[in-house]
């Protein structure tokens, strides 16, 4: 009983799979049909990629089912901080270089 609760169910996997398919098709259609201007489009597709990250984390990687204390989730938060700092920091600092647009 406990192990079933701990590792998700078929329903959770199918829901996660359908959600990830939908979250892939929508940005693809948006880009192919040139629905929005470039700026809006970029924000929209990045937003959907982040949604999909959470789908994978909760439906497939069972982040929510972890027992307390939640060390795995803490490691993940630290990882996200690192990734954000590296990516956003690099883009920001390189924007001062006039050769890079």
């Amino acid at each position: 009983m406990e192990s079933e609760k701990h590792h998700g169910s078929l329903k959770a996997y199918v829901t996660g799979f359908i959600a990830s398919i939908v979250l892939t098709i929508i940005p693809l259609l948006l880009v192919v049909n040139h629905t929005f201007k470039k700026g809006t489009l970029t924000v929209a597709i990045l937003g959907m990629a982040i949604c999909q990250l959470f789908v994978q984390l909760f439906f497939f990687m069972h982040l929510k089912d972890e027992k307390k204390p939640r060390y795995n989730a803490m490691a993940l938060v630290l990882g996200i901080i690192f990734v954000f700092t590296i990516v956003a920091g690099s883009i920001w600092i390189m924007s001062f270089n006039e050769q890079v647009h």
Binding site: N72, L76, G79, F82, I86, I91
Partner: peptide, 25 residues
């Protein structure tokens, strides 16, 4: 051991973050 693997995944995230940042620039 599973927790250790999560830490490995986060270091792998840093590797990919560097490559993504390079690509973005």
């Amino acid at each position: 051991k599973v927790f250790g693997f999560w830490i490995f995944l986060m270091t792998d995230c840093i590797l990919f973050a560097c490559l993504f940042a390079t690509f973005a620039v």
